[in-house]
Simulated assay, not measured.
Amino acid sequence: MKATPTAIPDVMVVEPKVFGDARGFFYESFNQQAFNTATGTDYQFVQDNHSRSSKGVLRGLHYQLPPHAQGKLVRVVRGAVWDVAVDIRQGSSTFGRWVAEELTEYSHKQFWIPPGFAHGFVVLSESADFLYKTTDYYAPQSDRGLRWNDPQIAIPWPDLGMEWLLSDKDCQQPLLQDAEVFSV
């Protein structure tokens, strides 16, 4: 397993070792010890989630506040998504900045998004199965979000030639300037 820091070093692209031949492939999709070594972290994962979405579905930008802040290790097992992490750690040198990575079933890349970041993605393929491990359980009282199209953050979501499909909740999220965020 290899972890490569992004332009925001705490967010990393994680690449497992994939063994393939004419029959197909095999890889360890997760190994706690290898993850900790590759990322230099000591997070433990407690929950796995799976979502399926169709092309143009945009989910996010979501996060949980302490004491239930979540780190997420995300991957795509069918299809393709454009995955985004936004630094919401007030006082961080990268506060309000974002990084993104295209995740596909073929690349096997994973995206490590530590606590203190909002997360979202848009589906690029006809549909996508998206899996993510979290470092804390879902806690509705800590659940928060940011507006996906906040002009202060200015994420250039890919143009798919169609309107985004968003939940009512995601359409009503606050702008970063009005949101509850993390203190560093």
Rank of each mutant, 00 (worst) to 15 (best):
S29Y: 12
W157G: 00
P151C: 08
K55G: 08
W112L: 02
S127R: 01
S51Y: 02
L175C: 07
P9Y: 00
M12Q: 13
T104N: 09
K2G: 15
D10Y: 03
R89G: 07
L175P: 08
Q64T: 00
R59G: 14
F130A: 01
P114C: 07
R75E: 11
I8D: 04
Q33E: 14
Q141S: 13
R78G: 13
T37G: 10
P140E: 10
K72E: 06
D42E: 14
W82L: 14
A100C: 14
L160R: 05
S92C: 06
V18M: 06
G20R: 14
A3D: 12
P140K: 11
N36P: 07
D170S: 04
Q110T: 09
W148A: 08
Q173M: 07
G56Q: 03
F35A: 09
S53D: 02
H119S: 03
D48K: 12
A154Q: 09
R89L: 12
A80I: 03
I153E: 00
Q141V: 01
F35Q: 10
R23V: 05
K55R: 15
S53C: 06
A34M: 09
T37I: 09
A128H: 04
E163G: 12
G120F: 01
F130Q: 01
S127H: 10
P158W: 00
F95G: 02
H50C: 13
K72S: 04
F111Y: 13
E101M: 11
E101P: 05
D10V: 03
V122Y: 00
T104F: 02
L160C: 12
D136C: 05
T94E: 08
D143M: 12
S54D: 12
